[in-house]
């Protein structure tokens, strides 16, 4: 705890407030993850920690290390950039996978696939059925789908 005692008060008080705010945001997000009802509501909750929680804790860390080393310490921006760029990607992938699984099980609570939105939607199912019928192998279907979508 010795390096923190050299920190002046004008830096220690904002750092303490930022740390408390970030940790409180993260705790709220995780409580939401525990308490909310369905998956599509739960997927919103941890983003409170990945946006506000990460931002506050990283700002506190940048402030403390910049004052302690008396030079601008900015490498925490790397962590912030990585988390902010990757969180929407992973949660979109996860939500689409969950939607796909719910539709596969004909769950009535999720909206059905729109028949008019993509042109490749309706031909995909009749195309996949004859391909799977001759039992060519498990790895046959994805390249055929890619070739069919790339040809027109």
């Amino acid at each position: 705890m010795t390096p923190l005692e050299q920190l002046p008060a004008w830096a220690a008080v904002p750092a303490a407030l930022l740390l408390l705010a970030g940790a409180a945001m993260t705790l709220l997000g995780s409580i939401g993850l525990l308490r909310l009802g369905g998956f599509y509501e739960r997927v919103h909750a941890p983003t409170l920690g990945t946006s506000a929680g990460i931002a506050c804790v990283l700002l506190a860390s940048m402030l403390v290390f910049s004052v302690l080393q008396s030079r601008p310490v900015l490498h925490e921006l790397l962590v912030g950039l990585a988390v902010i760029v990757t969180t929407p990607v992973t949660l979109m992938l996860l939500a689409r996978a969950a939607l796909y699984r719910d539709r596969q099980e004909a769950d009535a609570t999720v909206p059905a696939r729109q028949p008019d939105a993509p042109a490749a939607g309706p031909p995909a199912a009749p195309l996949a059925a004859p391909l799977a019928a001759p039992s060519a192998g498990p790895g046959k279907e994805p390249p055929a789908g890619d070739a069919a979508s790339a040809a027109p």
């Binding site: 705890m1 008080v13 408390l20």
Partner: peptide
């Protein structure tokens, strides 16, 4: 004083 505040905040976080 401020170091104690920061240490408490770190513990609470």
């Amino acid at each position: 004083m401020s170091a104690t505040l920061l240490a408490g905040a770190i513990l609470a976080s």
